[in-house]
Design a protein around this nucleic acid. Structure first.
Lengths: 342, 342
DNA sequence: CTGAAAGCGCTTACAG
DNA sequence: CTGAAAGCGCTTACAG
């Protein structure tokens, strides 16, 4: 009806709340409430507003709402990889936990780089997020500073911290590395190698657990460790098992820091006629879907990645509401999956 | 300096552009320009503004910028899955193409549901996106309507359309299904089955290509098709190969609609002692990393998924700038990867 | 339960 | 090259 259009308007052309209100014959304020807090509006006016919304095809402007309310309803999630099935499962858990609450999730892929993480965080801070989910416990000084000055609630995922100033959801990467190695030792393997790639925080901690167990058994031998900075892939696992087999005499088992490497190692052994586990035992970490089904099936550690995402997002909401969490650090544990390959 | 703080302020507490300007002794407008279009500001003032930004730790408010400029710098991407490596590769391509231009990417996971896609799109429209990237060519009426009325540039990914009102980047799913089947026929296989899951648009089109080739060869037989709506997984491939082998007499090859199913089928054959490809040939679709490395290696179709994302995002930017694209439909092709399993 | 006014933090459109 | 004014489309904080 009352379409004000003087040539020099800056209006976007979209239907505004004011237009809806005019159409419904109420004040803008009433239209706003009818949409956001309908229980505060009489059913008569509420229905008129709803009808106007429908007829005009009104779409709320999120930027305007965020600016006026200084609540963005945005949650930032930073993960090291999107191609790694572990983190897509974490994301699924986050989405399922947040879905009913109308948050907009901003996903940042740090590509395992602290510098990239810092860059992404700084960009995402422009969106004034209500909360932040981070992967891992160790971050750049810049990230620590940004988080400290912004006072936005943060939950760390994948590992568990003991820091009273932090909130974390995950499991002990060191303990998991330790238990996998103990499993191999208990099975009687003598010369157990460690295959690590990417060299991110989690790889290093699993290696630390491996070393603890090996030292405890009096079998620690640094020449049995193969650590490379390349991204973890099946192809790399195939290549490294070849190198380890050739250069580490007497090697009878390999603890691969994740399942991709382990699968590649198993495939390569099949191709080369090395019988797994009789000639060489192989185990991995994460329990990806193929691990249970490949032949031989892959011994590994099952990790609660979906649950990590779900619980972390749930905990973050508690913090956003300003409530104190029941637990600041939630240990979701892990399970050794004994299968055919080791 | 001039900190105005009367008790009833609605200010967020964050450092504003106005504060930066005051600190630098310039007008807000000048501070704005020094940040967004520095070439329009004298170096003297520009440096004073930069210093103020640094000293105050200014973080721009993206909502305010979006509202004032009615440019969101947001690009919406809707994919059917985040756990499927195909779409994470597409996303990587999109991110690499968009990264230099400061867009914020809003990723929506439709979970292979048209209804979910419609819901997500409606929510994301509130962010007033500059452009939209969609997966596939077929969408709900609601989605079509929203896109038509909003007039936001859209590029469809994964398949190629011929519709002059659309813009698309991908390859012909039908042709790829046809060529894979022709490959099997040329190899001499007689009774070639089709294993399809999820029953999404792409599965259906690959099946269509399979049927074309089989009919052409006079070998089309509907009893050789196994179609189930469940999500495609390795476990499902293992289960379905078992059913097909048991119920389809004389079956000598299976075209699985994707690599997950094919890998599961190959693993299961190994477990059951069915020799691949001598007793049963298996091929897949997409060329996931494991396909080249597993034993036997998996014959499949290599798809340009990273490139689809990259080119689609590049094309979208052309549309956003209001330019006419050189080509409205970009066919990136595909490659039959002949390996050991078929 | 309803509404008029002011303001969120920026940029546009002018003017000089 | 610089700046004062107005406005983007909502919500907050009041008042009635």
């Amino acid at each position: 009806m009352s379409r004000t259009s003087n040539g020099k308007s800056r209006a976007s052309g979209r239907v505004t709340l004011a237009a809806v209100a005019a159409h419904a014959g109420v004040a803008t304020m009433t239209a706003s409430r009818a949409i956001s807090q309908p229980e505060l509006v009489s059913s008569l006016l509420r229905e008129r507003v709803e009808k106007a919304v429908e007829e005009l095809g009104y779409v709320p402007n999120r930027a305007a709402r965020a600016l006026a309310s200084s609540k963005s309803n945005v949650i930032v999630v930073l993960v090291p990889s999107l191609s790694n099935a572990v983190f897509t499962a974490v994301l699924a858990g986050i989405q399922d936990a947040l879905d009913p609450y109308g948050y907009q999730i901003l996903i940042g892929n740090t590509r395992y780089s602290d510098a990239e993480e810092e860059k992404l965080l700084n960009v995402y801070m422009q969106s004034n997020p209500d909360g932040i989910l981070l992967s891992g416990l160790s971050h750049s000084k810049g990230v620590e500073k940004t988080l400290a000055t912004s006072r936005v609630p943060v939950v760390s995922m994948m590992d568990i911290s003991t820091d009273p100033d932090r909130v974390s959801v995950g499991f002990s990467q060191i303990q998991a590395g330790y238990q996998m190695t103990r499993y191999l030792l208990d099975k009687g393997y003598q010369r157990i190698g460690f295959m690590g790639a990417q060299l991110d925080e989690r790889t290093i901690k699993r290696q630390e657990g491996y070393r603890m167990a090996m030292a405890e058994a009096g079998k620690l031998d640094p020449t049995l460790e193969m650590m490379v900075p390349d991204p973890s892939t099946i192809a790399l696992g195939a290549e490294l098992v070849e190198r380890m087999h050739a250069t580490m005499p007497g090697l009878d088992a390999i603890f691969c820091c994740n399942d991709d490497l382990a699968h590649g190692a198993i495939f390569q052994c099949q191709r080369r006629g090395i019988v797994v586990p009789q000639q060489l035992a192989i185990c991995g970490f994460n329990d990806l879907p193929a691990s249970a089904l490949m032949h031989p099936s892959c011994t590994t550690i099952a990790t609660p990645r979906y649950k990590v995402g779900f619980e972390a997002a749930t905990l973050l909401q508690t913090l956003i509401r300003g409530e104190a969490p029941e637990q600041q650090h939630i240990d979701l544990g892990f399970t050794v999956m004994a299968r055919e390959s080791a």
